[in-house]
């Protein structure tokens, strides 16, 4: 079984993330980036499925030059091939544009299953998988905390607020997975060495049959009009419990009219 896994390169959440002052887009250059933690889960799931079926895992990332790092990390974990779509015109793409580029790239690949994370750790919209399904005309089974493939069908468990659902669709399908689904592996030394020799292709917009005016800031369906750092929270009051901590807490709540 051939599995395409979409992985995103994101600014490290532990570092100071910011916006570029020129155009209010996320600063992806002056901050350390990495494979979105939540995209390690679909990579892990794909590796398990590929192992069981003698299949192949192709990772796909759309992003700036350094996004290769995200693809490489997935290769180190065990993915077989990678495709990196990189083109200056993609800078500033919103979700509509990103899903368009991803869909065009997927259309060029051979696959039985498309796996994605539940959300990126930067934009964290949680919409790209649904948009991909819509654009590709494929079944969407998303937010899976369990996935089984049997008889040409994908079956997932989805935990909603009020219920747990079992959902099935025939392949090929777009499946997004949550962080409940597995425990992603760390790349082994052997994996890191092997990754250096794995095929990693770079595609431009032209390779996808798209033009610069269809994506990026040029085509954006949305625009960010202002960005402001949230003022630091004024330091609150912290007391040490000396047998009256609970009472003091409620005094504070009463003062703030919260009880």
């Amino acid at each position: 079984m051939n599995i395409v896994v979409c992985v995103k390169y994101v600014p490290d959440a532990q570092a100071d993330r910011t916006f570029s002052p020129d155009d209010n887009t996320t600063d992806r250059e002056n901050v350390d980036g990495l494979l979105s933690e939540l995209d390690e889960y679909p990579v892990e799931e794909a590796l398990k499925l590929a192992d069981a079926t003698d299949g192949k895992v192709i990772v796909l990332t759309v992003g700036p030059e350094d996004a290769t790092d995200a693809a490489r990390k997935a290769l180190q974990m065990g993915a077989h091939e990678a495709v990196h779509v990189q083109d200056d015109a993609i800078h500033g793409s919103d979700a509509l544009a990103t899903s368009k580029v991803l869909a065009a790239a997927i259309a060029k690949l051979e696959y039985d299953l498309i796996l994605t994370g539940m959300a990126s750790t930067d934009g964290s919209m949680g919409v790209v998988p649904a948009m991909l399904a819509e654009r590709l005309g494929l079944p969407q089974i998303t937010l899976a905390s369990e996935l089984t493939i049997e008889g040409g069908k994908a079956v997932i468990r989805r935990d909603n607020d009020a219920s747990t659902e079992i959902i099935e669709a025939s392949l090929p399908a777009v499946v997004s997975v949550t962080d409940q689904i597995n425990e992603p592996r760390y790349p082994s030394f052997k994996g890191i060495m092997a990754a250096k020799k794995k095929p990693l292709q770079t595609w431009s917009l032209e390779d996808l049959g798209l033009t610069a005016d269809e994506v990026g800031s040029a085509a954006a369906w949305t625009t960010v009009t202002s960005v402001a750092e949230r003022p630091a929270r004024t330091a609150g009051q912290v007391v040490t419990d000396e047998g009256d901590g609970g009472a003091k807490l409620v005094e504070f709540l009463a003062g703030a009219k919260l009880v």
Binding site: V238, D241, G243, A247, L249
Partner: peptide, 28 residues
């Protein structure tokens, strides 16, 4: 977490919460 708080108590939750609960119920 104390960097974010409006009010914080450094202490054992098993002591602080029951006392706070009692205090709220008393006020009500």
């Amino acid at each position: 977490i104390f960097e974010l708080v409006d009010f914080g108590v450094v202490g054992d939750l098993f002591k602080v919460l029951p006392q706070a609960t009692e205090e709220v119920l008393k006020r009500k």
